[in-house]
C-alpha cells in the first residue's frame, strides 16, 4: 500500500515545499479513485475538500435542464480541483465528474482549516500556491467568456 506522503510531495502544486508542511497535511489527506462517470462533487456541496489529480480527467459542468451538462473546464493529472474551500461559505460551484478512471489525493479542508488556526505559516504557504491557480482560471475564463470564435451576429459584405 502506498503512503500518502510521497503522493503529496510529488504533486506539482507542492513543488519545492518544505517537507514539514507535507507532514502537517498528511493527516488531512486520503487516496481516492473515481470510475468513469462517477461524480466527484455536486454543485452546491458544502465544499470541505479539494483534490490533487494524479491520473485521469475530471470535467467541471454546469447542468442546464434543456441543454444537459455544459462542460466549462476539464482538469487532468498534475492539476488541482477545488478552491472554494478557501473562502466561506466553502460551497462548490458546478458539478465535477470523472471522465475516465480518476485517481486523486483528497484533502479534507475542514481538517486543514483547523490546522491553519494554529499554523499561519501553513496557511500562507497554501494561499501562495492556490492564488496563482485561481488567477490562471480567472484569466482563462475571461477569454472563454469573450467567445472569440463565435459567429458574428450580422452578415458582413465579405
Amino acid at each position: 500500500m502506498e503512503t500518502i506522503e510521497p503522493l503529496l510531495a510529488e504533486h506539482p502544486i507542492f513543488h519545492g515545499i518544505d517537507p514539514k508542511y507535507i507532514s502537517l497535511m498528511v493527516g488531512c489527506a486520503s487516496n481516492v479513485r473515481f470510475n468513469a462517470g462517477e461524480f466527484v462533487v455536486h454543485d452546491g456541496d458544502k465544499d470541505n475538500e479539494f483534490y490533487l489529480i494524479r491520473h485521469g480527467t475530471v470535467a467541471l459542468d454546469v447542468y442546464s435542464p434543456t441543454k444537459g451538462p455544459i462542460t466549462f473546464l476539464t482538469l487532468g493529472p498534475g492539476e488541482v480541483m477545488g478552491w472554494e474551500w478557501l473562502v466561506p461559505p466553502y460551497q462548490t460551484q458546478g458539478d465535477a465528474r470523472a471522465l475516465d478512471l480518476v485517481r486523486a489525493v483528497k484533502i479534507d479542508a475542514t481538517c486543514l482549516r483547523a490546522k491553519f488556526e494554529h499554523d499561519h505559516e501553513l496557511e500562507r504557504e497554501l494561499l501562495k500556491r492556490f492564488v496563482p491557480i485561481i488567477t490562471e482560471r480567472l484569466k482563462a475564463l475571461t477569454i472563454q467568456l469573450l467567445d472569440v470564435y463565435a459567429p458574428r451576429a450580422h452578415k458582413s459584405s465579405f
Binding site: 467541471l60 441543454k67 444537459g68 451538462p69 455544459i70 462542460t71 473546464l73 476539464t74
Partner: peptide, 17 residues
C-alpha cells in the same frame, strides 16, 4: 474546446491552457 455538451470526452478550456 471552450464549451462542450453531450458526448465530448476531450479537454474543455481555452487553448492557452
Amino acid at each position: 474546446v471552450d464549451r462542450a455538451t453531450g458526448s465530448w470526452r476531450g479537454n474543455v478550456g481555452v487553448v492557452t491552457r
